[in-house]
Design a binder for these strands. Structure first.
Lengths: 122, 122
DNA sequence: CCGGTAGATTGAGGGCTGTCGATGCATCGA
DNA sequence: TCGATGCATCGACAGCCCTCAATCTACCGG
């Protein structure tokens, strides 16, 4: 297939708690159980970093981006970028797809919707 | 003033970045400047703790609560509670009002609305 | 006044996290 | 097959954060 060199592996690099936080746990209504609180806290911890927030905004703006294209705008080393993408993926906020030599990252909108809902007065 | 012992001091124990994050900085649209990213990250960092999330849910449920009534349900020592309330207040998520011997804490809904907006695809 | 209570502050200890250089592992072009 | 490229992982270092005992301040009841 000379048309494109993509070969599209479609490996969900990491999802972790992606499913477990689909709908549960709203902060501003019920007393919020300890397990739910821990899970929500982990999600917000993934957002508690300026580099990761800017990474997300770049991803949202570009729709999709490989790791190598993130180093320059973020001003961080390659291992650091890899560290952050892994953290965001484990929090279910982004998804990585390995196509050939590159890993393409993309936002997971449903996850953000779930977090917005968690901050809703209900 | 024997009518009530409240004396309503109405001291905003801490507000800090409360105003500065009124509307700005959406994650999922523009490339998000570094200062905005730092400020947003600080807000999410305040939410990145299970104890604080449960504290918020208790506050949301009760409408208002003094520090002493938080120790038992959260299972933490008094200095720890004070530490968390201070962190949340500095993030603009709650407001404290000192009435007599007690400090009454309350949720700041506008702040949560701003954070929900920051997580919006716009 | 004085004892008791609510809560903020301080200091110490233990753990987690962001960062980067070095290294290893795939994949692609020639 | 070989060199180059994209990325993940490891190890180490520095900094920050949660937690609590101890202490201090402010306030109330008697």
């Amino acid at each position: 297939m000379t048309a494109d060199t993509t070969t599209t592996t479609t490996i969900p690099v990491a999802d972790g708690a992606a499913d477990a936080a689909g709908a549960c746990c709203v902060v501003l209504t019920a007393p919020l159980s300890e397990p739910d609180a821990g899970e929500l806290a982990a999600a917000f911890a993934a957002l508690a970093d300026p580099v990761r927030l800017r990474l997300l905004s770049i991803l949202a703006d570009a729709g999709e981006s490989c790791s190598c294209d993130l180093e320059a705008p973020l001003g961080k080393s390659q291992p650091t970028i890899s560290h952050h993408t892994k953290a965001l993926a484990e929090a279910g906020l982004i998804t990585g797809e390995k196509r050939g030599r590159w890993t393409w990252w993309r936002i997971v909108p449903e996850r953000f919707a779930a977090l917005r809902l968690a901050l809703d007065p209900g």
